[in-house]
């Protein structure tokens, strides 16, 4: 088991390292930030002085190693635009994104758990088809479009909920729905097939035959076991929502990391883009690691594989 954990952790670290190279190189190709930071009539001497100050005159591999050695100590440089340490900026914006992603995850579970459980119980019924339809719809709509529709109906039309910003708890409802609808299909499928397996098992039949009420049987005895695959995948859903929140955050003017990265992109604010995407990758890898390890704990076959 220790070897398995060690190998997975090393693999994860390698992925992050690779991702950092890709992110660094690609952002460097996107043009000279100094041109955007200084007025066009700035003298040449000033431009080159600025480049030197930011270390942009060095060869790219040297810039990368500087970036890496600083990053390990938590120093991601200063934002060109906000004139503050990137880490501080991220620390300021990340909580809003985590809050939004958590709310979206809660929303998706509020749909997918009843959908999955009841679809399995009433297999082939109209409810089964209805749940599948709602779930498939979520996969067929861009999340930002769902967001815009929600704004039209609930913010502009009915004036029930605010459309922009993050001042009150009410503000999170619409963006959370927009972000949380997409994974419903996958989650419902997992819960449904796990429930079908469990419902077929002897202990459930046994329980039914000795007269355990159907509701207790389904929710207490069956669902608790059927939830295992969903729980192990939870980290992945959460991470993918963190990583996918860019457009939704832009639509709702949500003060999170996603919108910050998009804005930084347009401003060629390299350090912010690099660190923002790297953080997203880090959470992605960490979530996958947790899933792998929890599967390894449950299933020894995976642990010993290769």
């Amino acid at each position: 088991m220790t070897r398995f954990v060690l190998r997975r952790v090393l693999q994860g670290m390698f992925s992050i390292l690779g991702a950092s190279v890709i992110i660094f190189v690609v952002t460097r190709l996107s043009g000279d930030p100094v041109v955007l930071m200084l007025p066009p009539e700035a003298p040449e001497a000033m431009v080159s002085q600025m480049r030197e100050r930011l270390g942009l005159d060095l060869p790219i591999w040297q810039q990368y190693f500087m970036f890496l050695s600083d990053a390990v100590t938590g120093d991601f440089g200063n934002s060109y635009r906000w004139e503050m340490p990137v880490l501080e900026l991220i620390r300021e914006r990340l909580p809003a994104t985590i809050y939004l992603a958590s709310a979206a995850l809660v929303f998706s579970l509020m749909l997918s758990i009843p959908f999955g459980v009841l679809s399995a119980v009433w297999r082939g019924s109209w409810f089964d088809r209805f749940a599948k339809g709602v779930a498939m719809l979520g996969q067929a709509m861009p999340n930002f479009w769902v967001g815009l529709l929600l704004i039209i109906v609930f913010a502009i039309g009915l004036e029930w909920l605010p459309a922009y910003g993050a001042d009150t708890p009410k503000h999170v409802i619409l963006p959370a729905i927009a972000l949380g609808w997409y994974p419903v299909a996958a989650q419902t499928r997992i819960v449904r097939s796990a429930m079908l397996d469990v419902l077929d098992s002897d202990y459930i039949r046994m329980g039914r035959s000795v007269g355990v009420p159907e509701g207790v049987l389904i929710w207490k005895y069956a669902f608790r076991n059927a939830a295992v695959p969903l729980v192990t995948m939870m980290g992945v859903y959460f991470a993918s929502m963190l990583g996918g929140a860019f457009v939704v955050e832009v639509v709702f003017a949500w003060p999170g990391l996603g919108r910050t990265v998009v804005e930084a992109l347009f401003a060629r604010d390299f350090p912010v883009v690099q660190a923002g995407v790297l953080f997203a990758a880090l959470m992605f890898v960490a979530a996958n690691l947790v899933v792998d390890l929890s599967y390894g704990l449950i299933d020894p076959r995976i642990r010993n594989d290769r």
Partner: peptide, 12 residues
């Protein structure tokens, strides 16, 4: 796969 798809797309 460790880089969120949309994030990679955005920087590219």
């Amino acid at each position: 796969l460790s880089i969120p798809p949309l994030a990679l797309a955005l920087i590219l």
